[in-house]
């Protein structure tokens, strides 16, 4: 039986093979060039970032022993052997954890309320004034590009140590981040209801209230819940710069080598974050479900 594969004559095959080889060679050359660039960048950055592999592998034992010590009490027993001793500061930590959650909540809520009003001014399809739109966009950009902790550091100077500085820093960052997302939501709405309301002679605010808002609200809430999740994590480290929350006790425990306290607080944070993640994702799915039923 003849083979189904067609064999071209040698003369016809040679130029095809040559061009194939050339194509492969040029791709190889291209990849090599990219690799060389990456290797050069790695070399340069390693010098700049003071990478010291000898130190890393020499001290890697410190990392494992650090983790090991995290889970041992001062008397050498495993932490879970004596939960009461491990969580000796439970009352204080729970209060601080509650404060952290409140900070995340207030920061998210204030930021979301601000972003809610800015979004309609910043969305290209409904913005009342072009110059105002540009101004609001730049403002939101500034708010979200400057890191939250930098705001917190400056607010600590102005408002003193404590959660107030942290909440305001978080609110400003949330305002910037949500302002952008909300504006994008508004830009994606169906314009017909808005036109319908405007056609009846309604003012801009009424057109927004009855034409745009009903289409956007569930997305707004969904994004705010996502942001709340992020802010819970962020609130936990606000205390590092003195801006309230459980971070204050955490950084003290880390700096003073109270190992079992570090693991106790970290565990509380990890569990809280996991619970909040689950709850908010449940709420978001409910919300999406409600949206689809209408």
């Amino acid at each position: 039986m003849a083979s189904p594969v067609v064999h071209l004559p040698e003369a016809q095959l040679r130029p095809l093979l040559a061009s194939y080889d050339a194509a492969v060679r040029s791709r190889r050359f291209h990849s090599l060039l990219v690799m060389a660039c990456i290797v050069a960048a790695i070399g340069l950055s390693s010098v700049s970032a003071e990478v010291d592999l000898a130190k890393f592998f020499g001290n890697l034992g410190n990392f494992t022993s650090y983790i090991w010590r995290l889970f041992h009490l001062d008397n050498g027993a495993w932490v879970w052997a004596d939960p009461v001793e491990w969580y000796w500061g439970a009352a204080r930590w729970l209060r601080l954890l509650g404060e952290t959650l409140l900070m995340a909540y207030v920061g998210t809520a204030l930021g979301a309320i601000g972003a809610f009003f800015l979004a309609f001014l910043a969305a290209a399809n409904v913005a009342p004034r072009p110059w105002l739109r540009l101004l609001v966009r730049r403002f939101c950009e500034l708010c979200r590009t400057v890191p939250q902790l930098v705001f917190a550091l400056m607010f600590v100077i102005a408002f003193g140590l404590g959660p107030l500085a942290g909440v305001l820093a978080m609110a400003i960052h949330t305002l910037g981040a949500l302002g952008k997302l909300f504006a994008e939501v508004v830009e994606n709405i169906d314009m017909k209801p808005v036109e319908g309301v405007s056609a009846t002679g309604a003012h801009w605010t009424a057109a927004m209230r009855y034409g745009a808002l009903p289409q956007t609200l569930s997305n707004f809430v969904s994004y705010s819940l996502l942001r709340f999740e992020i802010n819970v994590r962020e609130a936990a480290v606000m205390g590092f710069v003195g801006a309230g929350g459980i971070g204050m006790d955490l950084i003290e425990a880390i700096r003073k080598f109270y190992y079992s306290d570090v693991s106790a607080i970290l565990l509380m944070i990890v569990v809280t974050v996991a619970v909040i993640d689950t709850l908010t994702s449940m709420a978001r799915h409910r919300l999406i479900g409600m949206e689809e039923r209408h």
């Binding site: 010291d52 130190k55 650090y66 994590r233 480290v237 955490l250 700096r255 970290l266």
Partner: peptide, 25 residues
């Protein structure tokens, strides 16, 4: 993922000392 990057930084500082290398890690 649920441990913030700053906390990781503090832990790595304990291992390789203050400096940018801890930041990389």
């Amino acid at each position: 993922r649920s441990v913030d990057i700053l906390i990781w930084a503090l832990i790595w500082i304990n291992v390789v000392g203050l400096g940018p290398f801890a930041g990389v890690l």
